[in-house]
Amino acid sequence: MSEWLASYENVVALVLLNGILGIAAYLMLIVNRFSLATGGLMAIGAYVSVLATMNFGVPFALTLVLGGVTAAVMALLLGAPVLRIEGDYFALATLAFTEIVRIIALNWESVTGGALGIVGIPTETQIWQLALALAALTAAVFAVHRSAAGRVLAAIRGDEMAAAAIGIDVARARLLTFVASGAICGVAGAFAGHLNFFIGPSDFGMIRSIDAIVYAVFGGLGGVLGPVVGALVYTVLPEMLRFSAQAREILLSLVIILAVLFMPRGLISLNLPLRRWLPRRRGQRGKLAAGQGVAAE
């Protein structure tokens, strides 16, 4: 068992980390905002926390908080003007943000090391920490879903105009969600920074942001477990397909296409009886079809 763990330790760590990112993306998707800011916010968390550990000797736990807070502040600054932009335009504005952060990291050599990155980072991140963080986050989101705040979010998702009509401050709710999502990205960035001895600007670009969305959408937006399952499958799949070095990319893309075609509402929409035992939002089934249909526009 420990031998297996040694061989796949990093894969497990990545699955947990990606689960966290997936939830961050999920939170924005369920308020109808396709956010690609994940990468940029993660980058901020990562660089801030790594610089804190390496240059100022700040203890790791504190740098997690530091990363989260910095990213959250950035999310606040970014979100205020940008969240009112709709749909695909919003996605592209956040993409622009992530890319700009990446380009700054690429050029601000004295701080970030440019393309050569930061080397020799102490590997503080442990699997138990990630597992704990993911579990805590999942529980927290689940709790939110069942609370009054959760009902506000569901209302916004279901019909924004109606929600506003009954007095919900949609813009404020969205901003708070974006800040929370940003904080999560920042903490995830801090974890990621201390995972592999090294970080560089290309670790946190467009692809990272898109991957986070994929975890959430692919897994299913019906509940907080969707992004977690999505992250699990999407991270493990390339590792499982290693038996075929040549055709791995082709196989991987085909599997994803087939999965999307056969499970168009995401992986957790599979009606396994197991679902009866899994926690989910109250009255989810009926709302699921309507919620996803309208929210997806």
Binding site: L29, I213, V214, V260, R265, Q292, A296
Partner: peptide, 8 residues
């Protein structure tokens, strides 16, 4: 499948 799935 909704739009976002189409994107994926």
């Amino acid at each position: 499948g909704h739009r976002w799935m189409g994107l994926i």
